[in-house]
């Protein structure tokens, strides 16, 4: 068996007294798309943010391609270029044009010359369908365009895997589709993806596996048509009923 792209081992995370993650273990194979679902406060976003160490786990390990990144000796900045991350609030750099948003890290981190960085950036903007906005500032783009730019920005670093933290939750309903379409095409191209989402339709269609979290632990995991259609646990059933009613 090959090394998993992401392996999380007995992860605990406290915020002060509050234990948000109570011993989570899971792994994601290369090319696999895993959706993490669950009620708010279940710890799913914290778990995702631990994967690239935006949150420092209190204990436990995170292995990326077999390398334990919780080890202080690991070059975390270098590891992070291999892990793309997309945020709920997009977090584009508002003082830079869309194109510059995509080139700045390529130049500073990967030391690519400006010309090459811009060529790659335009390619990625093309891929997510917002090349026409290259010279605008992010404030001049719609939410859906901003999130697609954010995805393109991550792709420019040539990541081997992508983390999505509720990427469509801040979007107006009519703009959700264009972002999900981009994510679908990424999945089709074989990208390893870990997606925290409330979009059950997307999870059902795209995910290879769904992880249901509640109260800081993984309650249930499996193929989408088991976890999302015929959940074994009462907690998952209750959650799905609530989501459907909405």
């Amino acid at each position: 068996m090959s090394t998993p792209a992401i392996q999380i081992v007995d992860l605990h995370k406290y915020f002060g007294e509050l234990e948000v993650l109570k011993g989570v273990s899971m792994s994601i194979e290369r090319g696999e798309v895993v959706c993490v679902v669950g009620p708010s406060g279940s710890g799913k976003s914290t778990l995702l943010r631990c994967v690239n160490l935006l949150e420092l786990p209190t204990s436990g390990q995170v292995l990326i391609d077999g390398i334990d990144i919780t080890d202080p000796k690991v070059d975390l900045d270098q590891m992070r270029t291999r892990i793309g991350m997309v945020f709920q609030q997009f977090n584009l750099f508002p003082h830079l044009t869309v194109l510059r948003n995509l080139t700045i890290a390529q130049e500073k981190v990967l030391k690519r010359p400006r010309q090459e960085a811009e060529t790659i950036a335009m390619e990625m903007l093309e891929r997510v369908g917002v090349a026409n906005k290259a010279h605008e500032y992010p404030a001049r783009c719609s939410g859906g365009q901003q999130q697609r730019v954010a995805i393109a920005r991550s792709l420019c670093m040539g990541p081997e895997m992508m983390l999505f933290d509720e990427p469509t939750s801040a979007l107006d309903p009519e703009l959700v589709g264009e972002v999900l379409d981009v994510m679908r095409s990424l999945a089709r191209d074989g990208m390893t993806m870990m997606v925290v989402t409330h979009e059950m339709g997307f999870a059902r269609d795209v995910a290879d596996r769904v992880v249901f979290m509640d109260g800081g632990v993984i309650v249930e995991e499996g193929p989408p048509n088991e976890v999302l259609v015929n959940p074994k646990t009462e907690r998952a059933r209750r959650f799905l009923r609530m989501v459907e009613e909405k």
Binding site: L54, Q78, F87, Q89, N91, F93, I104, K108, V109, M157
Partner: peptide, 24 residues
């Protein structure tokens, strides 16, 4: 989120300060 976005692209704390945070 600005710091987080830049750091998750692999930029160091110093690089992020200099080209993302301080200009804003």
């Amino acid at each position: 989120g600005q710091m987080e976005a830049a750091r998750s692209l692999g930029m160091s704390r110093g690089q992020t300060m200099a080209s993302i945070i301080i200009p804003q």
